[in-house]
Each structure stands twice: as C-alpha cells, then as structure tokens.
Design a protein around this nucleic acid. Structure first.
Lengths: 295, 295
DNA sequence: CTAGATTATGCTCAACATGAGCATAAAGGT
DNA sequence: ACCTTTATGCTCATGTTGAGCATAATCTAG
C-alpha cells in the first residue's frame, strides 16, 4: 500500500476558520501517492483538485502518521503524509465546515468555549482520580494542568493536538477506543482525520506568530478590525485592540488603499491591503499576538 | 516499496556537533518500515539499534521526502521519513562525524567559516549574473542576499536547507546534477542524505531557541561556559557571555552542584546540573541566543 | 613574590518591546 | 442634541535585549 497524501485546507469566512471536508464532514481530501506524481506535493494537488475542484496555492507539509498495528489491513499499513494549505473559499464550493464544530473547546474567544473547558477539566480531574497509582494520578493531574492552562499557567493555543489526545485517552471523544458515557460536544471524523486537523490547527496557530501567513486568509482589502478578528478566530483568543494595531502598523506589511469600509457601524474604518512586494524582500515576522484578558 | 525511516543522531563532543553516519560517512542509519513495527518511531529505533548499536532516547519527526521521478526505480518511488534524535556519544562508538565537515560554511563562529561565506557569495553572484533574463538575475540576487544575510539582513542560522539548496542549484556541491568546476569544501553524502542532515540542523537550531533541548546534549554536570560553547557550536554563532549567563540564570532550569570545574585555566568555574524535575512542571523556553557580533 | 594572562561573575545603561488603559474622533440612530 | 458604536492617537509602567565596564579568582612566567 503506497503512502497516502492528505490535505487540510483552511479558509476564514465571517471570522470563522473553516476546513474543507468530504463525505458529510467525516473525511479530508486524500489519495495515494502514485507513480505518475512528480513529487509529494504534486500528488497532493492532483488529488485535492480531483476530489474538490479546488486548486491549491501555497502548501506546507505537516506530519507523517502511521496506523496503529491493530488497524493494519491485508495490504499493509496505512501511512498518511499530511499537508496544510491556506486559501479562500470560492463561490459555490461545498464541504466547508467551521473548525470549531470539531473542536468547540478550542475557541476561547467566546464564553461558551471557556465554560466548556471548565466542564472538561472537571471530567479530566475525575479521570485523573481513576488512575491506579498515586503517582499516575499526580502525573495525569499535571498533564491536565499543563495542556489546559490551569494553576496560573495560562491557555496555550498551540496545544490543540495534546488536548485532543488527552481527551481521547480519557475516552471523552467518539473516536476513543471505548468512549465513555460523557462524550463532549464536537463532531467526530473518520479514521485519524481529527488528529490531522488538530495538527493543522496547532501549526497554523504557531505560524501566524512568526510569519505573516494570516494575509493568505484575507481578502484583497480589509479593515484593521477585520484583520484582528481573523487572527483572533485562528488563535481562538481575544487580543488587545490598540496594541494589535500598533504591532501591525510597525511591521509595515500593509498599506492603505485610500478607501473606507462601506456599510459599517460607528466611525468608518480605513481599508488596507497586503504589500505582496515585501514577501521575499526581507525577513518578516508575524503578529506576536498582543493578548487581552478574557472578557 | 515501503517508506524508509531515516535518523539523524546528533551529539556534541569537544564543542563540535557530531552526526552518526555509516559507510564511511556517506549514509545515515535507515531502513524500511516493516509490518512488525509497532509504529514509525519503533521501526526507526529498531533500525538504528541494529545498524549502530545505539539505543535512542527522545526522537522527533522532521520531514518526509520523496525521490525525484527520474530516480524512481523498478520497485517504485523511495519515500523517506526522517527523524532527529539528540543523544551523547558512547565510548567506543564509531561513525561520528562533525556536522561542519559536511557544511563548513554553516560555522560562523570561526573566521574560516566567515571567509568561506564571502567566497561563496562571490560564486553565487556570478551564478546570478549567468541567469537568462534580467528579472531572473534580480530574483537570484535577492535570494542570495536573503539566505546569506547580505545587505544588513544578518546571518540567519536556521536557513541551513535553503543555503544548501541554493548551492545545489548553482552546481557548487558534488551532489548537483552537473557539478560545476568550483566545488566547495565540505563532504558530500549519498542520495538525499545531506538534505536530511541540513533539515535536522535547521530544526535543532530553531528548537534550542524555544525549548531547553540543549541539555539533552550536555553531560551531567557542566560549567556555564561549556553550556555556552555547546549552544554556539549548534547555532554556529558566537554569543555575548554575560547576557548568556543572565538568560540561563533567569530561566531557573539549572542548579549548582556545589563543585567547581577541575583542571581549568583562569578563575575556576562552578559546576551546574540540569533540573530534570522542571520538565513537565511548567512550560519552558529555550535560550533566546544572546548574539554577539562576529569577533 | 609580582605582574600578566585568563576565565568567572556582578552590575549598569540605553533602546526597544509589551501589556494596559485613557482620551478623542467620526459616523449613524433616537 | 445626545447616545451608541467603532476608529484612532497617545501615555505609562514594566520587561527584555544588546552592549560593555568593573572586579574576582585562579595559574604562569619572570
């Protein structure tokens, strides 16, 4: 069985990060590496275009997964080479789903997400208490505290995969080997797809901090608030407005279009565009995420 | 043909970063994924132990490569899943080579490395001038400036792979499709191994900035200067001594052993050890590399 | 025994970055 | 005219970073 190529296509629409899925949201675009493919990336592009009609722009390799030995079929082991692609939704495309539909606890901008985390931590505390030895109990508690930012550690938005795997072990998600009684809200996916999605979310959240990739998700022109809302949606965390603007301004990556946003409430906002020229011209940082306290 | 697992084992000895090789330094430990392997990592561990006798500690996946279509053999395409492992050299082990033997231009702590870069930039300028169109010439020049830190951009120690691929394109390394007359100093390797090594170097250089992985490369007890020299050796850049100590001290990751380094010149230095307990207890940063100007 | 030479270690300073919040501006709606 | 809403400018305290001065302990050469 040849390795399989699998893609996580991300776009942001109405301040919601979206992922392109197949089969009612249970699968991601994927297909086996074939002899005719010129490279891994070309193979990936062909499969995605064939299955979704979406032509990919910039693409980045994520991680290579292998099936657990229990799942090894007659043709051998399934090896998944995963990719992240940032793009924009095109008119009439179907299959886009909000990524927080799959990971509702990852949205810490809304009170629902924060409440959900409180409930999860309770359930995980019970799980920790069920460990056989005292040492294992303590180890579990420390892991919960670390991944969910308890005890003054603060929420780390990049620990998406670690949180998912903890929930998986605690049998709180439908994919778990023997899901417990309390299954959390959040759609499941087939096979390993939700782990692949979690990996993509973590990588994107990490990347917007040190590369200006957020602009790949923006329309041609946008207001500063729109940009902030997009970053917040991806990071799942609210940010301080004035500091965000200061940061974006001093990076010099955008310029005014001279126009003003239409149909807005309040004082009209100036429109900006990304300066494509600067890419390549110098080394550039992303947004360092000026965080705000949860409201 | 099943995917192949390949490992870059790194250690630091006498302030020189070393890599574990086979076949006279031309190969890295590797072997195909087999049905009996419980996971990719287990497969990798088995192969490395079988081929080198070295049991691996912590391991991290790097990148998955595929052969160029021209190199696809009768059994199909070769897919390489690469890993980085940090370790220490054990007594009597053979096959360890200095990584700067393969990438001499990556050592910017020594004047030889800096002089070599000057020569390389000259050769690349000529290569840029040989481009067919003016636009392509300009694009090449910009790429050279970016990857080699010209025009006030500063040397970026993480661009190991980008520099290697640029030299490859300019036919300045023995692996190039048609190596030119001027082949640079630096050992070549078989197949894609030198690209894998470059990827590992870049990842390690990036990682010591935000995770305390440098301690995986240190002996049980060490002086602050020894720690600094190790970081400098990995990063290939000199650092400011006092600032380095301030940084390390404020991280609270090490503690004094109470002893003093033996057989030292100058004022004797206190010995420190890494506090293994703090791993997992909190989220911790690496060394932010207080850089010094090239001397 | 003393003057270097050599490495260790403590401390200061300026420049800049970051988190927080006050204040004012410019729209639309009642 | 006033209130609501969003945009935008500015200040302030604190922390981080790059650079370098000064002093402390050791050894070696003369």
């Amino acid at each position: 069985m040849p390795p399989e190529l699998i893609a996580v296509l991300i776009a942001v629409s109405d301040d919601r990060p979206m992922v392109l899925t197949l089969e009612g949201g249970r699968l991601l675009p994927s297909g086996p590496l074939e002899a005719g493919h010129r490279s891994l990336q070309t193979g990936l592009r062909l499969w995605v275009e064939h299955q979704t009609g979406h032509a990919l722009g910039h693409v980045e390799q994520l991680y290579t997964f292998a099936d657990a030995p229990a799942d090894v079929g007659p043709d051998g082991r399934r090896v998944l080479i995963s990719y992240l692609a940032l793009t924009r939704i095109r008119r009439g495309e179907r299959g886009w789903r909000g990524w927080y539909d799959y990971f509702p606890w990852e949205d810490q901008t809304a009170p629902e997400g924060r409440d959900l985390v409180l409930r999860i931590v309770q359930l995980l505390d019970e799980w920790a208490a069920r460990a056989s030895s005292a040492a294992e109990q303590e180890a579990r508690r420390q892991r919960v505290a670390l991944t969910f930012g308890l005890e003054g550690l603060g929420w780390d938005d990049e620990l998406v995969l670690q949180r998912y795997e903890l929930l998986w072990e605690a049998a709180l998600v439908p994919e778990s080997a023997s899901p417990g009684a309390a299954v959390l809200p959040g759609l499941g996916m087939a096979r390993d797809e939700r782990r692949v999605l979690a990996t993509a979310m973590a990588r994107l959240r990490a990347k917007i901090r040190y590369r200006p990739v957020i602009y790949e998700l923006m329309p041609d022109s946008f207001t500063l608030l729109h940009l902030q809302r997009t970053v917040e949606a991806v990071a799942g965390q609210p940010m301080h407005k004035q500091n965000f603007r200061r940061l974006v301004a001093q990076q010099g990556l955008i310029e005014e279009t001279g126009e003003v946003a239409p149909d807005t409430r309040g004082r009209p906002a100036r429109l900006f565009r990304f300066r494509r020229e600067v890419i390549g011209a110098r080394r550039i940082a992303g947004s360092k995420l000026p965080l705000a306290r949860p409201i």
